[in-house]
Structure formats: C-alpha cells, structure tokens
Amino acid sequence: MSVLTAKTSPWMRGAAIGFITLWLLMAAFPFVWTLWGSFKVQGDFFSRQDWLNALYGVQTLAETGSSFTGRGYYGAWVEREFWRSVINTGIVTGFVVVISLTFGTLGGYALSRSTARYAFWILIAALIFRAMPHITLLSGYLLPFFQLGVWGYLSTAIIVLVAINQPFTIWMLNSFFQTIPKDLDESAMVDGCSRFQAFRLVIIPVMWPGVITTGLFSFLLAYNDFAVTAVLLSQENQTMVPKIASFMGSTQVQGNVMFAVSAVVSATVPLFILVLFFQRHIVSGLTAGAVKG
C-alpha cells in the first residue's frame, strides 16, 4: 500500500510502530503471562508481596524445590479429572462441526440456487435467529428437556449447538455458493444429471475452501460455548468451559485457582494451533461475509 504510506514522516511511522507494539502487547501478553504463571504455585502467581515473584518463582522454589512446577496441571487433569471434559469437548465439537456442515451445505446450496421469495424469508429468519442471545433459547429448552428426560446428555447439547449454529452456517455457505457459477451445475443438469447428482458430482468437488472456512467457525462456536453447555449438561458430562467455571466456584481453597489456570492454558492450546494453521482461512472467512454482505 505504497500509496498510503508514501511520504510518511518518520514521526508518523514511529507513532504507528509504537501503537502496533502497544496493541501486540495487549493482545498477546496476557496469554504469555498466564502460560508462564501456570507453572508456578498460587503464592507466586497471586503474590501478596510482589508480583515480580511470579517471574522468579520464589514461593514455587520454596514449596516444590524447583522454579517450575506441574502441580496445577496434575491437580486439574488427574485429581479433578479434567481429561474427561477434554474428551467430552472433543466429542461435542467433532459432531457439531460434521452435522452442521452437512445440514449447512445442503441448505446453503439450495438457498443460493433458489430465486423464490421464501428463500429470502428463510435467510431473514436465520438472521433474526442469529441475533437472538443463545441463553433466551435455553430457557425454552430446559423445562421440555427435563420433562422428556433428555437433559444432561452430550447428544442433546450437540443437536442444540447444531441448531444454534445453522443460521450462521447457511448464511456463510449461501454467500459462498453464490460465488460458484450457476452454469456449472446447470450444465451438468442439461447433460442429464438430477439436481442431487449435480450437487454431488459438480459442486462437492469445488466447495471445500468454503466448507473448511465455515467449519472453522462452527468449531469455534461449539468449542467456545459456555451458555448451552453449562445449562444443558450434567456434572459428569461437562465439557471444558463449564468445567473451568466450576473450578472457579471454590476459589478460596489454596491451590484450586492454579487448577483453573492450568485448565485454562490447556484449553487455549488447541485454539493456538488452530490459528497457527488456519490463519488464512479465518481471515478470509471473516471478510467473506463482509465483502459480499
């Protein structure tokens, strides 16, 4: 963008670099700090004397004999069985992504190829559903789910998350399928394919970039959800995020906070890896909706 930056005074450039450094510090430092602190004891990470203790690990050295300790991780993963929540999260996010994408590609494709007025109304309804806070729906589910005896199971949470995900998924895939020329599947149909065959043979091979991007956001929605999983899952079926929230319930107990800190770091790792590998997809996905919006 040479046009924008040409003839920039050194002062201007310095200000921009200073600003971006400040922002990077704000954006990334909390994660670095928490990662570092998760290997200390509570007396250091929440030091009453001096926060610098968290850097040197004075208490950690005194309590455990080394300046780094895995106690928090041991407590969270083994004592409090965080691994169960990790498995539950894996099951929930896996199924949510696969089912959302299956439903979403079919629906999004149909919406992108239909010129009927009801297609517009479905999109508008989806937009309103997208705007509704998830928790308002939860108060609708809870009583019927209790009555039907389906409350507390992973499968219930999965199907609810799929449904909550649908409005966003069909919007995104609808706008993605609109970038695939209609001639492609229509010429296949002229050659004798049925609509479904055209979808299977012509559209499926070219739809993966859009599906991967949408899948990433479905994953994030399921992985990051707190409201649905906290209200709909029973204690033993809890996923990671509500489990971490339940760690916080007993903060006063010495050491418990460090369980939560370690669990938080553990739950952040998959997200880091995701951004690391799919940065380009995430960026393009965020902008896709906007540009075609």
Binding site: A28, W33, N224, Q279
Partner: peptide
C-alpha cells in the same frame, strides 16, 4: 497471528485470564 488471539479465545477463558491479571 498475535492480533487474532483475543478474538479466537473462548470468551469465558479470555475474561478469566484478564480477571487473574
């Protein structure tokens, strides 16, 4: 990459991280 982190993080986890700081 670094700029995306605050957005990608689970809201509850992100707020806990800041809460502890």
């Amino acid at each position: 990459f670094a700029s995306l982190l605050p957005m990608i993080i689970t809201p509850l986890i992100g707020s806990l991280i800041l809460f502890w700081m």
